[in-house]
């Protein structure tokens, strides 16, 4: 019981990692990127390719992939999102969904139907565990959880204390006025997308290390990220962190109830939070409400 809880929290670390990029982009650009999961899989494949071809450690490959992902993010913003978001709020949904189909099938075309994993490239790390109070805690999941904390903490600090973060918050809050004080909204959007895609690169690597992936694994990753974001209240990155953990716990509870209940448990908690958000006090069930001022909020219009 305790063991499953611990495992769930560790899994939640992965969800937090994959969700934070989605939430970041949503907060800053008001866009939910439906290609988010597919891009994570894309980065996982690139990491795998580099690792396999050059015999690097996946961690080194990831460092190589991060700038690639940043470039992809910047291009995504410049080529697709910028144009799409001018056409209203529905167009980004359609274009990013279309993009995800392109990415998924290109990956399938290129890498075939076999599942891949990065686990075999990190040797013992993939199964090594710490023993704590009689519980076996995998080293790798702990690393992933810590990475999630570092990434989210880093984004939080960036937003709060750097000039860039200030400009990002200002643009998210009121793009027009941001322009009037001299902020280049296009540049900020490009940088934000690049940052979001770097987190996607990290989470893609984490996914590959944790288990296996295939070309069509993007969709579930998108749904997990989306669910964690909504559960976390979408307004705060730390909220998203706890959203990921809550999602993972609900999934484990679901799995305990019924052998096929893993995903259903997650969906159920997601719908509950959504229900609460809609029908109760808007904030009541979100972590933002409970954690209040302790979490960072990226300021935004609520209208």
């Amino acid at each position: 019981m305790i063991n499953s809880l611990v495992q769930a929290i560790l899994l939640g670390g992965y969800y937090a990692l994959i969700a934070c990029g989605l939430a970041f982009m949503f907060q800053v650009m008001r866009i939910i990127n439906l290609a988010h999961g597919s891009l994570a899989i894309l980065s996982a494949y690139i990491v795998w390719r580099i690792t396999d071809a050059l015999a690097f450690s996946p961690f080194v490959s990831m460092l190589i992939v991060l700038p690639i992902m940043a470039l992809i993010g910047w291009l995504l913003q410049r080529v697709i999102l910028e144009r799409a978001s001018k056409g209203g709020e529905l167009l980004p949904v359609l274009t990013t969904f279309g993009l995800s189909i392109v990415i998924d099938n290109l990956l399938f075309q290129h890498f075939g139907a076999n599942t891949r994993s990065l686990a075999s490239y990190v040797g013992d790390l993939s199964w090594e565990s710490y023993e704590v109070f009689g519980l076996w805690i995998g080293k790798l999941p702990v690393i992933i959880l810590c990475t999630a904390i570092v990434v989210i903490g880093g984004l939080d600090l960036l937003l709060r204390f750097t000039p860039l973060g200030r400009q990002i918050r200002a643009t998210a809050f009121d793009p027009e006025t941001a322009g009037l004080v001299g902020i280049d909204a296009r540049k900020i959007a490009g940088i934000s997308a690049a940052i979001a895609m770097m987190t996607v690169g990290i989470s893609g690597t984490a996914l590959g290390l944790r288990g296996t992936f295939d070309a069509y694994a993007g969709a579930p990753q998108l749904l997990f990220a989306f669910e964690a974001t909504i559960i976390g209240g979408a307004g705060s990155l730390w909220g998203v962190f706890f959203g990921g953990i809550i999602l993972a716990i609900a999934q484990s509870v679901g799995a305990l109830i019924h052998p096929q209940g893993f995903l259903l448990g997650g969906h159920f908690i997601f719908l509950t939070f959504l229900f609460a958000r809609i029908y109760l006090n808007r904030d009541f069930f979100t972590l933002r409400h409970w954690l209040g001022k302790k979490t960072t909020k990226v300021e935004q219009h609520e209208n």
């Binding site: 697709i80 359609l94 274009t95 993009l99 189909i101």
Partner: peptide
Amino acid sequence: LVGLGAVAVLCSL
């Protein structure tokens, strides 16, 4: 399928 996705993106843009 790649073509379908790409055409959809291009059309919407």
